[in-house]
Amino acid sequence: MSTMTVTTETLIDPAVFEERIFLDGQWVPGGGGSIPSIEPATGETLAQVGMGDAADVARAAEGAQRAQKEWAALPHPARAQVLRRAGELWEQYADEIGGWNVREVGAIPPLAGFALHVTAAECYEAASLPSAPLGQVLSSEQPRLSLAEQVPVGVVGVISPFNVPLILGIRAVAPALALGNAVILKPDPRTVITGGVAMVRIFEEAGLPAGVLQLVPGGAEVGEALVSDPRVRVIAFTGSTRAGRAVGELAGRHLTRAHLELGGNSAFIVRADADVDKAVNLATWGSFLHQGQICMTVGRHIVHESLFDEYVDKLAAKGRVDARRRSRRRSRAPGPADRRGAA
Score class of each variant (00 low, 15 high):
239 G>K: 04
46 L>K: 07
285 W>T: 12
35 I>P: 00
154 G>T: 10
318 K>E: 12
292 G>L: 11
314 K>D: 08
291 Q>V: 14
69 K>G: 06
31 G>R: 05
79 R>M: 13
140 S>M: 12
59 R>A: 14
278 K>D: 05
170 I>P: 02
49 V>G: 03
310 E>K: 07
206 A>Y: 00
255 L>P: 01
181 N>R: 06
176 A>D: 06
1 M>T: 09
292 G>K: 08
77 P>G: 14
206 A>H: 01
339 R>Y: 02
256 T>W: 00
32 G>A: 02
250 L>M: 14
295 C>M: 07
187 P>S: 08
19 E>R: 14
324 R>D: 08
87 G>I: 01
179 L>S: 13
73 A>I: 11
163 N>F: 04
76 H>V: 15
319 G>E: 03
289 L>S: 13
316 A>N: 14
265 N>Y: 08
73 A>W: 07
201 R>N: 09
100 W>L: 14
245 R>Y: 07
243 A>L: 14
203 F>W: 01
182 A>M: 04
116 L>F: 01
232 V>F: 00
19 E>A: 11
281 N>W: 06
195 G>E: 06
282 L>E: 08
179 L>D: 03
33 G>L: 03
94 A>P: 01
60 A>R: 02
131 S>A: 15
44 E>W: 02
71 W>R: 12
9 E>M: 04
136 Q>W: 00
326 R>E: 09
337 A>Y: 00
8 T>N: 12
186 K>Y: 02
178 A>D: 05
37 S>N: 04
100 W>K: 13
85 R>V: 07
273 D>N: 15
276 V>N: 12
202 I>S: 03
153 V>Y: 05
267 A>C: 12
